[in-house]
Write a protein that binds this DNA or RNA. Sequence first.
DNA 1: CGCTAGATTGAGGTCAATCAACGGGTGTGG
DNA 2: CCACACCCGTTGATTGACCTCAATCTAGCG
Lengths: 241, 241
Amino acid sequence: MDTIKALPLFAGLDPASLNDILKYARITNHNKGALIFMQGEQASRFYIILEGWVKLFKGNVDGQESILQVLSTGDNLLETVIFNDTPLPVNAQAVDNVKLLSIPASMIREKLKNNHALAVNMLSTVSGRSQALISQFEQLTLKTVTQRVGWFLLKLFLESGDRTKNLKLPYDKSLIAGYLGMKPETFSRTLQTLKEQGIDVERSSISLPDVFALCDFCDSDLAVQCSRHNTPECPNPVCMN
Amino acid sequence: MDTIKALPLFAGLDPASLNDILKYARITNHNKGALIFMQGEQASRFYIILEGWVKLFKGNVDGQESILQVLSTGDNLLETVIFNDTPLPVNAQAVDNVKLLSIPASMIREKLKNNHALAVNMLSTVSGRSQALISQFEQLTLKTVTQRVGWFLLKLFLESGDRTKNLKLPYDKSLIAGYLGMKPETFSRTLQTLKEQGIDVERSSISLPDVFALCDFCDSDLAVQCSRHNTPECPNPVCMN
DNA sequence: CGCTAGATTGAGGTCAATCAACGGGTGTGG
DNA sequence: CCACACCCGTTGATTGACCTCAATCTAGCG
């Protein structure tokens, strides 16, 4: 319960209205592989991830799918659909066992009309989502396969605190491949080429030769997360990749 | 001035605070080809397009560029950056002569804190932007070149009112090609193949044999704009492309 | 021990990019 | 009014990156 009240979306809300919102909330569990919702459906609820990984993706008739994002604890699903209640544009699937908090869409819509703090928090969230999409977009359109894989590893490295030279892939390689817009085979081959450049890959464990090993793959989005950004230590001051 | 007050972002605002906002607004003109802002800069102002076309794109070091969106009258630039004042993630360029309304970012930020109607409008706008990005994303990842071109023509057809069988390309073919994630050569060749299927292309004028000519390219996003959607007239009821 | 799902490796195919040449409007200056 | 240059778009030939298909391998697990 405390974790719920600590969610960014609810930051700064007065306890009364928070309780009011949570009265209609529901917690659900979804097994690995379960579909949480499908594109084309009407959005009836708004979700927040409490635990686990959720894959957001689009599918087409011939079974192809393209992954928009892989979301985790604290992330929201379907902020954008709250307004225009058009059919859902995406599918969501539980990557592992997932615990979700969900709130009726109509409820959120109602609250947004009156609760200013909530509206501002939501605006901030949606902005973040939008930024992430732009970043994802960039990956797929103007980076090579190798750059995408390097970028992903660097992101992992930065998220894991910037210092540890040993990383662990957070989920299946085929899912990572999909997120990076390539086939598992291609991902595998690309890891091989990185191996030749000194980055050791063993199953799902990665060891970097040094903390600068991935700096070539830095871009302006990632730079802001790096503790060495804008310091003399940064080997790559103009991250324009 | 009336057009400004009719902007979706300002809908329902009380006149006093609207005037307050507009006090700090500025109108600027930009010639065809001019850069309005560049990625990496700090966002100092927030823009609304009053007239003309603006291209939003990302560039990388070796001169490649990928186009996120081509925006027009009434659209906003940089809603998302208002919050986190990180460096801009994109470039904006005037496609033709452009007239912009701009407001200091700090000003908007301030107003959003207090003005609930403005926050709600902004939220709605950002949501729409997010949806558009998802749609654009789908185009590039799980559609063939031909489907993308067909989709673009269909979008044009629907925007032009659903009935006229004669269309006009709104801007340069090379820009359309870029927006659809392909090279001008590829776009040209694809138009040829469509020509063989009965869609007449002559310079920048398109004539459709009948109003259903493009229905194969419909998807759930476009369907909602179609006057024949959910009627017996629709030849393609399950638009799952 | 055998099964299975995920990961790897290899060979071959394909679609769009690239490089290069050409065409045909449009505008300019003589 | 014509000659020329320039830009955009087209067309052709080739390349190459990634996908596809298929076989093999590995680890985890009953």
